[in-house]
Design a protein around this nucleic acid. Structure first.
Length: 169
DNA sequence: CCCTGATTCGC
DNA sequence: GCGAATCAGG
């Protein structure tokens, strides 16, 4: 039989649509469908016009896949905007600089900005207005992002002794 | 570093 | 149409 590669059959497309609308990530869908990469899934999703599950407020993320491989323009690249002064919000007065250990603390959102797919790891004192949630992309089915999931779900064997107070920070 | 989706473009 | 490469961001 000349069964070429398992392309996007109607069944596979329907499965894709279903999983995508179901909120599964591209990589998860790719793994579930099998035989395709997450890029393939994303590409197909876009061609199907399914992209943009999340309604962004105001085209907040225009930047994405440019392809600088064309050296032609790379030569004429203009550095332009240099970022001289980082705002450096001094958010948590109780947060020492000891975060140098590599603590991501990337996004931080208020409870109003918190979405289902965002990490609910509490950060700061809940009794103060500075209180935020981590807000990173949560692992599907879990309330936390990958980083905080590792903290929250430590194997008992590993945290036996080194269990420093994880405290919400 | 892990992940996420977005985009471009050679095939 | 397809998806790897690449990008930006969490």
């Amino acid at each position: 039989m000349m069964d070429a590669g398992p392309s996007w059959t109607k069944e596979r497309v329907e499965l894709l649509k279903r999983l995508w609308s179901d909120g599964r990530s591209a990589s998860q869908i790719a793994a579930e469908i099998g035989g395709v990469s997450r890029n393939a899934v994303i590409g197909k999703v876009h061609r199907l016009g399914l992209a943009g599950r999340v309604v962004k407020a105001n085209g907040a993320s225009p930047a994405a896949g440019r392809r600088p491989r064309s050296d032609a323009d790379s030569a004429a690249e203009t550095p332009s905007v240099l970022a001289p002064a980082p705002p450096a919000l001094a958010l948590f007065q109780s947060a020492p600089p000891s975060a140098a250990s590599g603590l991501p603390e990337s996004s931080r959102v208020t409870i109003m900005e918190l979405r289902e797919f965002m990490c609910r790891w509490p950060m700061g004192d809940p009794s103060t207005p500075d209180f935020r949630f981590c807000g990173d992309r949560a692992i599907a089915g879990l309330p936390y992002c990958t980083h905080h999931s590792r903290i929250a779900y430590q194997p008992a064997a590993e945290r036996k002794r080194d269990r420093k107070v994880v405290g919400f920070r």
